[in-house]
Amino acid sequence: MEETKMIKVYIMGKEHEVPEGLTIMKAIEYAGYKIVRGAGCRAGFCGACATVYRKANDYKLRVALACQTVAEDGMYLTEIPFVPANKAIYDIEKVTPKANIILQHYPEVARCVACNTCTKSCPQDLKVMDYIQAMKRGDIAKAAELSFDCVQCGLCAARCPAEIVHYHAAQLARRIYGKYIAKPSPNLEKRIKEIEEGKYDEEIKKLKQMPLEEMKKKYMEQQKNAEKERD
């Protein structure tokens, strides 16, 4: 049996020995820190554990989600669990999908100098600058699409020389897309109308009163006749 290999990591500058192969988050915990700020879903969805780090002998400042990245020997790291960023307040009912709507709520978007630092700071590898540029030209659908996988960790906003709050602006773009550019589902409208007219009340009432054995039979029948994949 091999011994567990230990590596050195520098958490906020302080040297710690941790077993190799742990995520940055688990390495921080192994080193004795009980995280209150800086851990959320622990699975790459919430953006609570945004981390910046440098590797030994490398000038590049790198970014990661602590829960999704393995700690490496010689890593200099700190979590950035919060980024000050002002969110625009709006009434989604009154917002319209016109071209300059994002600029109206986030005028600083116009300050983008296309340096692409935001894209390089994104632990999700999103094309952040491209969606900011899409906003500038009023292409809300593109901005919504390109920003969709954003976990709102805020690293883009922390690094931007134009002081843009990318992830808040993107949230607005997506909501405008979802509400105004994507149209309501006709099937859904119809079904709601049917429910409100009481179309299913009788059937559900019957199911609720059905003897268990009969219901089990009906259930298995339903499972057997499950919809098959359409071509």
Binding site: I92, A144, F148, R174, R175, I176, Y177, G178, K179, Y180, A182, P184, S185, L188
Partner: peptide
Amino acid sequence: HESLGVMY
């Protein structure tokens, strides 16, 4: 959700 702007 549609009315709030969820992108399904």
